[in-house]
């Protein structure tokens, strides 16, 4: 009973997990919405299938940004100082870069919408390209924010930023699928476009999931402890929600779509992949913190 006189709390809770998920989704939604303007007739013009989605997609990305930005600010202990990472910029902190890129990303969304609204098609491509680079930086910086913690072995892994980018592809695809299905604009080209992205996202997620497993199983004592923690406290989130529902089930549904081209099935697969994307991140964030708490 006398063993622990202290049990400090792990610093990052649900707000960070939800923020990472929402900002990743917003980023990929932007990519889909800007794709027709940026890629045009490249790849056989398949990106043009997203043309009806442009305005709705940008509004959806803006809405997600308007939710996730304040969520991140409220999560701070001193929310009134939310501009400090920009005012006192520290170049070695990914959080500083994220704080810089986040409003710029918002500006790109607003700029793209304005160009659509006021019918300035010549502006769509440059804003689209700039916004796509910034949207890539959103999940990338959240992953880097974990990766740079050299002292937390579950995070200090160069695949984490890549994983976060891929997970944002899954969640963004889910949002686009749901919106397009609800609006009745899920034609064959849209199906083909989203199907390809979801396949790539799921395949890469599976590969990185297996890579994570190998790292955990063959890792140092801290990773061994993380492995025990994941299986004791987060096994439902890790094995059921991430691996079962988030990776295996969508893969099975994707096989179904080979024989039966159903927008409903593809949307269901994308939504399940998004659920997996959320829980994969949350397990990594939570379990990565607990090993230090125990030390």
């Amino acid at each position: 009973m006398f063993e622990y006189s202290e049990f400090n709390i792990a610093p990052w809770g649900w707000e960070i997990t939800v923020y990472f998920f929402l900002i990743g989704t917003a980023a990929m939604t932007y990519v889909y919405a800007a794709a027709p303007a940026v890629f045009g007739n490249v790849f056989g013009g398949i990106a043009r299938s997203m043309e009806p989605f442009q305005k709705t997609g940008m509004l959806a990305a803006l809405l997600l940004l308007l939710i996730s930005g304040p969520l991140l600010i409220v999560d701070l202990g001193a929310p009134e100082r939310f501009l400090y990472p920009i005012l006192h910029f520290h170049w070695t902190s990914p959080l500083s870069w994220g704080a810089l890129f986040l409003p710029l990303f918002g500006l790109c969304i607003v700029g793209f919408l304005a160009a659509l609204w006021f019918n300035r098609p010549q502006l769509l491509k440059p804003i689209g390209i700039l916004g796509m680079l910034l949207s890539l930086s959103m999940p990338l910086y959240t992953g880097l924010d974990l990766m740079v913690h050299q002292t937390r072995e579950l995070w200090s892994n160069p695949t984490i930023p890549v994983l976060f980018v891929i997970l944002s592809v899954s969640s963004g695809t889910a949002l686009v699928s749901v919106i397009q299905l609800a609006r009745g604009q899920f034609d064959d080209r849209t199906f083909e476009f989203l199907h390809w992205f979801l396949y790539v996202a799921l395949g890469t997620t599976l590969a990185l999931f297996l890579g994570e497993l190998v790292t955990l199983l063959y890792g140092s004592e801290e990773l061994q402890q993380a492995w025990t923690l994941i299986n004791e406290r987060f096994w439902v989130q890790f094995w059921v929600m991430t691996f079962g529902l988030g990776i295996l089930a969508p893969f099975l549904l994707m096989i179904v779509t080979h024989y039966w081209k159903s927008a409903w099935v593809l949307t269901l697969a994308a939504v399940l992949a998004a659920v997996g994307a959320f829980f994969f991140r949350s397990v990594l964030i939570y379990a990565g913190q607990l090993t230090q708490i125990y030390y």
């Binding site: 400090n8 610093p11 701070l76 202990g77 902190s93 959080l95 924010d145 913690h149 002292t151």
Partner: peptide, 19 residues
């Protein structure tokens, strides 16, 4: 200057920081 983002807590391997 601290905004209490808790990144430093996450970074510390010795669990030496608190809010």
């Amino acid at each position: 200057r601290c905004i209490s983002c808790r990144t430093c807590i996450a970074a510390c391997p010795y669990n030496a920081r608190h809010v």
